[in-house]
Design a binder for these strands. Structure first.
Lengths: 146, 146
DNA sequence: TGTTATTTGATTGCACACAATCTAATTGTT
DNA sequence: AACAATTAGATTGTGTGCAATCAAATAACA
């Protein structure tokens, strides 16, 4: 019965993969109102939290590399939400900052987490439980990338 | 302290998003040996399980639409692993089948789940626990897409 | 100091994801 | 039979993801 191991229904990884896409699908209509995609929203979250950040730092926060971030950040710049400037002390570093419009967008984003909790029918304790499990799994997998 | 809701570290969705990418990253080196990407591997799993399937059915199993599947299936056809044929009873339907090479690849894929369990340092009971949680979350989110 | 190594982003190329639109085929209704 | 509605895939366009490669700048050190 070794075939059972290969069955799609059995696979943890598939559940994770499908869950992740379903979740971003729940976000989509809310983010459309802000004119953001989900990864762009994550980027703005970091910037709202920290004011500004280097490309490298954004990559570390979101586990994304420059091949993904550079075009994404250029689109956010095009949208007038962020600025991109080379650091004067180290010309290799690009610092991403917020424009006024980018800062203002935060107000519109404030109620997204609440709307999503409602939409997903999750109670606060379930929510936290799941988050903790994902985060511990993430940490374990992160530890394996040597 | 409503800002806390917007903090990246707090977000269930981000944990899911990052976990999912980390997991496919764990698969990548194993799948490279088979010449498959992760979504291609999922497609082959369904075909190994069911022998053949319509594009529609593959989409339902994996929650993917034709815009994703059509080019992916063409690549699998190019690789000589699957066949694509219009159904004779309903010309709208495209049936995806396995070639001999596609069937043979299953043998090489047999030990991927085991390798991955080792790699991820998960015990069987943890594995099943997580899988169940993901699947119930997935089911709940699926129920919301009306 | 001069050279090597490392770091930081950018670029390129390929493969998803997915919305929107289109075409062809089938089904339903009258 | 005639025609509207539905269904299955294909196509197009935009936006990630990520490996591989590159160039410029900085750090390290013999």
């Amino acid at each position: 019965m070794s075939d059972e191991h290969l069955k799609l229904d059995n696979m943890l990884c598939f559940a994770l993969y499908a869950c992740s896409r379903e979740m971003t699908r729940l976000y989509r209509p809310l983010l459309d109102d802000l004119g953001l995609t989900y990864p762009q929203y994550l980027t703005m979250l970091v910037l709202w939290e920290e004011g500004e950040a280097t490309v490298k730092h954004l990559g570390e926060r979101m586990y994304l590399d420059s091949g993904t971030l550079t075009p994404l950040l250029k689109r956010l710049e095009q949208s007038g939400l962020v600025t991109r400037e080379r650091s004067r002390t180290d010309e290799r570093v690009v610092v991403i900052g917020l424009t006024d419009a980018g800062r203002d967008l935060k107000a519109q984003a404030q109620d997204i987490p609440k709307k999503l909790m409602c939409k997903s029918n999750l109670q606060m304790d379930e929510f936290n439980h799941l988050k903790n499990e994902f985060e511990s799994l993430l940490k374990r997998m992160q530890a394996l990338k040597d």
